[in-house]
């Protein structure tokens, strides 16, 4: 295989993986930006979205609609969690917020076990999605799911970009992320902004969950954990709390993981996750504000 084609193939893999990380990381950053909260339960919205899509699909609903259902139920779950668990502890110590979200993770994952058992379920995808493209005699291949992932991520991120730069609500969300009290003083309804932030973040996670399941072919209650941790890494690489940073971090991380597997000695491949988290720790130590974040320092 020619090196050029090999690299092209890896770039395709990296973009596809990076899209998923970016989708999840942006949600983490939205919530962290506005609430200063490290939301460990964010990954579980992927699981909720995927199981919702699975259940809706099992009822004979076409994939397009079950995908939308996964997004909607992911978003709804996020909003409910905010209302029931996070709002009562809002303003408490960092650790209290973090532990509350850890408890929510525990509850949601065990709810998943209660409803679906802890073993993986097959995630069927429709025929039109179950195909792949081949170029240069099969030296470059990618699946329809890859294409769908990149396209839907592009659409979602464009909508988000429009929202946070062109609408009062989106500007307000950025304003509240910067200075909650000043946002209050100009008359922004901060509760409403927080609900919208959770709906958006969790909807994105729901979408990522369905796409993740479509790629992996299976769903299970613990499926959100690894992507969540990866999203943390992505968000911190880019600058925690920054939307553009999460986007950048997501794609960088996707590229990096593909690079580790494709170009480093194969003995290192199984240690990919360990390497990624070493990178996280390195960033926390040497560049806690990430690559993009400039306007506000992270307190250490």
């Amino acid at each position: 295989m020619s090196p050029g084609l090999y690299i092209a193939q890896q770039i395709i893999n990296g973009v596809s993986l990076g899209s998923l990380y970016a989708l999840v990381a942006i949600g983490l950053s939205l919530v962290f930006g506005i609430l200063r909260m490290t939301n460990f339960a964010h990954g579980d919205m992927m699981m909720v979205g995927a199981f919702a899509a699975l259940t809706i699909g099992a009822a004979g609903v076409p994939f397009e609609w079950s995908l939308l259902g996964g997004i909607a139920i992911g978003a709804l779950t996020g909003v409910i969690v905010e209302r029931v668990a996070y709002r009562p502890v809002r303003g408490a110590a960092d650790v209290t917020l973090l532990l509350t979200s850890l408890a929510v993770t525990y509850i949601l994952e065990n709810l998943g076990i209660l409803l679906f058992t802890s073993s993986p379920h097959d995630f069927p995808i429709p025929e039109w999605l179950d195909s792949s493209y081949e170029f240069s005699d099969g030296q470059i291949t990618f699946t329809q799911v890859n294409v769908l992932t990149v396209v839907l991520t592009g659409i979602s991120l464009s909508l988000l970009g429009w929202f946070v730069t062109r609408t009062d609500m989106g500007l307000g969300m950025r304003a509240a992320a910067e200075d909650m009290q000043a946002a209050n003083l100009v008359g922004l309804d901060v509760n409403k902004l927080i609900v919208i932030a959770f709906a958006l973040a969790s909807g994105f996670a729901g979408l990522a969950g369905v796409l993740w399941a479509a790629q992996a072919g299976v769903v299970e209650p613990s499926m959100g954990f690894t992507p969540l941790l990866k999203a943390f890494v992505a968000a911190i690489i880019g600058g925690f709390g920054s939307i553009a940073g999460a986007l950048l971090g997501g794609y960088l991380l996707g590229a990096l993981e593909v690079f580790i597997v494709a170009f480093l000695p194969s003995e290192l491949s199984p240690y990919r996750d360990a390497l990624v988290f070493s990178l996280l720790i390195a960033f926390l130590l040497f560049r806690p504000n990430g690559l993009l974040r400039t306007s506000r320092e992270v307190k250490l």
Partner: peptide
């Protein structure tokens, strides 16, 4: 050297590294 959320995320990273190893 870290504190707040970040030490928690980083120590969780440590747990994952141990698990992977």
């Amino acid at each position: 050297r870290l504190s707040g959320h970040f030490v928690s995320v980083a120590t969780l990273g440590f747990l994952v590294i141990v698990n992977v190893v």
